[in-house]
Amino acid sequence: MINLIQNELIKIFRRPGTYVMLGLMVVIIAIAGATMKYNQGTFQNEDPNWKQDLQTENEALKQQMEQEAGGPNDSSQYYKESIALNEYRIKHNLPPLEDYTIWSFVNDISQMIDFVGIFIITIAAGIVASEFNWGTVKLLLIRPITRTKILASKYLTVFLFGLFTLTLLFLLSSAIGAVLFGFPETAAPYLNYQDGTVTEQPIWLHLIIFYSLKSINMVMLVTMAFMISAVFRNSSLAIGLSIFLMFTGGQVTMLIAIKYEWAKYILFANTNLMQYFEGTPIIQGMTLSFSIIMLLIYFLLFLFLAFFVFNKRDITA
């Protein structure tokens, strides 16, 4: 299995397109950093009355929460979270505005995860379909290796390449952010709100968790692209459909969720696990465990279809 994965990685890194994609990522991060440095520089919190401002904001939030209580647009959970975070900042002397530093830049660059996802989807969509298009699939199958191992090695290769690309994104944004914006003298913690309690989390740990959770949507779409590639042997279909759903799946699901509760069973209603830590679920009553179960079901379904069809297909046909 290890030798198969090594061979697949060699194939990926022999393609000029791989280096073009990685080069584009480096250039975009550098341009984004230079643009932010030129236009924004560092933000300084110079408001000495920030505690009073937060107290005033809390009073307004409490009034708004009372007005909307029990109504169709009840957002009491959001108001409770905002009030609790503001009170915690006041009590522990944590101003809401801070200098723009390396961690701010790394957080902003996380928006590129979807952009990186396009690269990984392209790899996943072609890693099986290209073997059929080039006729090299027969050379793979004449070896004394099962089809399951061959396909598993290809999926693990895609997964490892995706992990490598995401790690590179995080490290590059950290390096460029450190050079352009520097480290804070004292890194302000990230404030977590869970079940009415506010806790502090080191900002670097929060960003690693944030990147991981934000990558779930990409992982599911990459797995779907891999499945389409294995089932239909069509990389164009896999790339087109996966990228289309990447940019429209969430919005369409939100529109359906406004009217129908069954929308919670749609894949894209569950890919954003950050909704359970920052904000509210897309449909009332959804829980973190429910979304994890739904993601596992979709994940296993995609892999089952890929392996089942690949193992049963008549290659000579």
Rank of each mutant, 00 (worst) to 15 (best):
M1Q: 11
Q6G: 14
E8L: 07
R14W: 07
G17K: 12
T18S: 11
M21E: 02
L22K: 04
L22Q: 04
L22V: 06
M25L: 15
V27F: 05
I28M: 03
A34V: 14
N39H: 14
Q44C: 08
Q44S: 14
D47G: 07
K51N: 09
D53C: 00
T56V: 12
N58Q: 08
N58I: 03
E59C: 02
K62F: 01
Q64E: 15
E66V: 05
E66M: 11
G70I: 02
P72Q: 12
S76F: 04
Y78I: 15
Y79W: 04
S82F: 11
I83R: 09
I83P: 01
N86I: 08
N86G: 03
E87R: 02
H92T: 04
N93G: 09
E98P: 03
D99C: 01
Y100P: 05
T101G: 01
V106R: 10
I109V: 15
Q111D: 13
I113K: 09
I113W: 06
F115N: 01
I121W: 06
T122L: 15
I123R: 09
V128G: 03
V128M: 07
A129M: 10
F132V: 10
N133A: 15
V137Q: 05
L139C: 09
L140V: 01
R143E: 08
P144C: 10
P144I: 01
S153L: 05
F159K: 04
L160T: 07
L160R: 08
F164I: 14
L166S: 05
T167Q: 06
L168Q: 05
F170H: 00
L171Q: 07
S173R: 07
A175I: 13
I176P: 10
A178L: 15
F181K: 01
P184K: 09
A187D: 00
P189K: 06
Y190C: 05
N192P: 00
T199N: 05
T199I: 01
Q201W: 00
I208M: 10
I208S: 09
L213P: 00
K214V: 07
S215P: 11
M218E: 07
V219M: 15
L221A: 06
M224L: 14
F226V: 11
M227K: 10
G240P: 05
G240M: 10
M246F: 08
M246R: 08
F247N: 03
T253L: 01
T253R: 10
M254H: 13
L255W: 12
A257E: 02
A257T: 02
K259V: 15
Y260K: 11
E261C: 08
E261V: 13
W262P: 08
W262R: 00
A263Y: 11
T271G: 10
N272M: 09
L273F: 03
Q275I: 06
Y276I: 10
P281F: 01
I282H: 02
Q284F: 12
F290N: 00
S291K: 00
I293K: 13
L295Y: 00
L296F: 12
L296S: 12
L296Q: 04
I297W: 06
Y298V: 11
L301E: 02
F302P: 05
F307K: 10
F308Q: 14
V309D: 03
N311Y: 08
K312E: 10
R313M: 15
T316W: 07
